[in-house]
Write a protein that binds this DNA or RNA. Structure first.
Lengths: 219, 219
DNA sequence: CACCTTTTGTTGAAATTTCAACATACTTTC
DNA sequence: GAAAGTATGTTGAAATTTCAACAAAAGGTG
């Protein structure tokens, strides 16, 4: 576990918890680490939510797929970020999304019931954990608001621009890299890939943005 | 405060807290009640989030409005439900939404810092409050997932049908009332009002649904 | 480096949505 | 209960998106 310490310390779930305590706590929580290859499903839709996931390396996508096979990318979690914590906290019987590794990824899984309920040996950090979890859930709520602000736009162009402006704000720079290829970006913005491609082309021609692969710049 | 006891007891924030303790706690938290007329803004976009809101009577809408004045309805909160709790917990400097009363509404406002930080006289329920808040945030996260599942659909018909099916599931009946008029439903589903109206008309003609004003039935 | 696979861009036709405008129905107010 | 205002349904034209198909580019593999 020691080699993951730097990532874990940066994870909001473990804020205000010292290094040494962190290691002991992980043990107490029964945290386990698993490696998933690219495109592997970490948690499949329909399963009960038991685990909080933490991305130690790599990255994951939270996706929904409807009857007709249309994929929608709800969110991504990258190194140091959590996923599935809301489902686990709410103890949902069947999660409505699938969690998929987008590259070879090391994932820490923590049984949420261990976080929520005080353990026998009173390791004494549950209150802090619950507080941190609450903060993280609040932050994720706000991220959803941002996503809804983007996808509530009516046209492909508006969705794309408001997404790119959000990225620029987050990166604190007009030049940034997005975590999506074209198809994935389309699935995230809920638009057609071909329409998105041509819209990117138009914005480039108009001198509003510059784009190469996953790298974008707002001019 | 006594007259609000029934509503407050049903509010997830006060779960596992007895009647008598609840009243004392409200006092300790400095909870205040305000009446807002229809269409009045309870919290305006851009203000710092300080308060957790609880709808004692009436109902509120959480809305976003872009530069061009296009309104999008993010969510509604009805009697016994909270709003703005995520922004307050995350202590955001400028909330990205406006909260508006959709009818004359009694609103309880609680300074979130009083919930998060233990008070001087150690009234002793903060841990339970924080736990409840965490649960509520998790549930709201899941509601966002549901909203995203609805609005990520590409066509007006699909958005409408998946919204109505969600309502039916929630009501546990094929017959239910939605909290929106036509324009509001359009703003919630992120579609055009006139297109929505005609789609409702088509679905009625096809015998798939029945609709009168805010009442719907899936056949 | 050649081959195969995947990703991206492009195109035009079909379908859908938006927009604007108006008619009708329903509410509210005096 | 008449008048004014608001909400809903309807329409057709314009704009946009989706769909399907293909070409070009990029990436991976032996």
């Amino acid at each position: 576990m020691e080699k993951y310490l730097d990532v874990l310390k940066a994870c909001p779930l473990f804020e205000e918890i010292g290094d040494e305590n962190l290691l002991r706590m992980l043990n107490c929580l029964g945290a386990k680490v698993q490696l998933f290859d690219k495109k592997y499903t970490i948690i499949a839709e329909g399963n009960p939510a038991k685990f909080i996931g933490i991305v130690l390396s790599g990255s994951v996508q939270i996706t929904q797929t409807d009857f007709f096979g249309n994929r929608s990318i709800v969110a991504v979690s990258q190194q140091g970020e959590m996923f599935s914590e809301a489902f686990a906290c709410a103890e949902v019987k069947a999660i409505p999304v699938s969690i998929i590794a987008t590259e070879p990824s090391e994932i820490m899984l923590i049984d949420c019931s261990h976080v929520l309920h005080t353990c026998a040996n009173h390791c004494g950090f549950h209150q802090q954990l619950i507080f941190n979890l609450m903060k993280s859930l609040a932050v994720k709520n706000i991220l959803f608001h941002q996503k809804i602000e983007v996808t509530s736009k009516r046209s492909t162009r508006e969705k794309l621009m408001s997404y790119l402006m959000l990225c620029a704000k987050k990166a604190d720079s007009n030049s940034f890299t997005i975590p999506f290829d074209r198809q994935e970006l389309a699935d995230y913005l809920c638009v057609e890939r071909s329409g998105l491609s041509s819209e990117i082309g138009k914005l480039k021609k108009e001198g509003i943005i510059d784009a190469h692969k996953k790298h974008f710049e707002i001019l």
